[in-house]
């Protein structure tokens, strides 16, 4: 198996002609994924942006076998494909889910949990644009604190929840591999994709995916925001690999929040107090993350095949 990297990425395209918005981060991640994994893929996308833009008869943007799943059922449909692959002993194929944050953190969490619990041989990628974008930017369980959506117009949500931590939720199932990535770090993403496709069992990637119309950012900002969200500490790059936790990037100090938040209209209404609260939540999240890494390092490594 040839290692996946920017250098080895083939010229072939497997995701062209889609009707995604200009500068869409989700389509960028999907394009990278399919280029890297090649044509022996079975892809499942739930109802949502990626399905709405890719399968409008008669224009079909996927160059590989792909189907739309019911919104709540990405994990289940993937499992059904994986079950047949097991039953028939089909080799050297990838079963790939590509779902947004709503389809992953909210309505599809049960189905994802079942698939992870059963140790299905699937690769599940959540492209996180931090709201229900296909329906017009409604708050999801992955919408960050302070973000304006069409169902949280002030950006203030009564319970002021932090984002659901999908990597840790996935890792809590004891699966082989879970990691976070962004549109701004293609080498890091492709390395993690390479690892994810090789582990024996479910792998989960949680990928930051800017949405220009939903976030009110420039259409050329998808990569830049990917970098600044990491530099500001709002999106830790982390991976869980068979019980070991690696924080891939430990910023000595965080870049000013404005570097990231200021480039997006959805955060425009935030005041000093809000920014302080976001910074405090970020710091707490990092403490918890480091504690998790230490805790996992202290625990005996899980028995697993390399």
């Amino acid at each position: 198996m040839k290692k996946i990297s920017i250098k080895t990425l083939p010229d072939e395209e497997f995701f062209v002609g889609h009707k995604g918005c200009s500068g869409c981060g989700g389509t960028l991640i999907l394009r990278w994924t399919l280029k890297a994994l090649g044509d022996r893929c079975y892809v499942v996308v739930p109802a949502g942006c990626m399905s709405a833009i890719s399968f409008i008869y008669p224009q079909m943007a996927f160059g590989v076998n792909a189907m739309i799943a019911p919104f709540a059922a990405t994990g289940a449909v993937l499992s059904g494909i994986a079950a047949t692959i097991r039953a028939r002993g089909i080799r050297d194929v990838h079963v790939v889910g590509f779902a947004g944050d709503g389809a992953t953190a909210d309505i599809g969490l049960q189905s994802l949990s079942g698939a992870l619990d059963r140790r299905e041989r699937i690769l599940y990628i959540c492209y996180d644009n931090e709201a229900y974008m296909n329906t017009g930017v409604q708050r999801s369980g992955a919408t960050p604190r302070g973000a304006r959506t069409t169902t949280s117009p002030s950006g203030q949500v009564r319970f002021a929840a932090a984002k659901k931590d999908l990597v840790r939720i996935a890792a809590a199932h004891g699966i082989p591999y879970a990691a976070s990535a962004t549109t701004g770090h293609p080498a890091d993403f492709l390395r993690k994709l390479d690892r994810a496709r090789q582990v024996d069992g479910p792998a989960f990637l949680h990928v930051f995916a800017p949405c220009p119309p939903g976030w009110g950012c420039a259409t050329d900002a998808a990569a830049d925001l990917g970098r600044s969200v990491v530099e500001t500490g709002l999106w830790p790059l982390v991976e869980w690999d068979h019980g070991e936790v690696r924080i891939n990037r430990e910023p000595r100090s965080f870049a000013p929040l404005a570097d990231y938040l200021g480039a997006q209209a959805r955060f425009r209404a935030l005041g000093e107090e809000d920014l302080a609260a976001i910074a405090a939540a970020r710091d707490h999240h990092w403490q918890a993350l480091r504690a998790w890494a230490r805790e996992c390092a202290a625990a005996a490594p899980a028995a697993h095949p390399a």
Partner: peptide, 28 residues
């Protein structure tokens, strides 16, 4: 019977899973 017996987490997933299998050409 040599079948994959899958313990799903809900009825919704039961039928969704079988659609994935049927798309692969399997009887379910």
């Amino acid at each position: 019977l040599d079948a994959e017996f899958v313990h799903v987490e809900s009825e919704h997933s039961a039928l969704a899973l079988l659609m994935g299998s049927a798309a692969m050409g399997s009887r379910t």
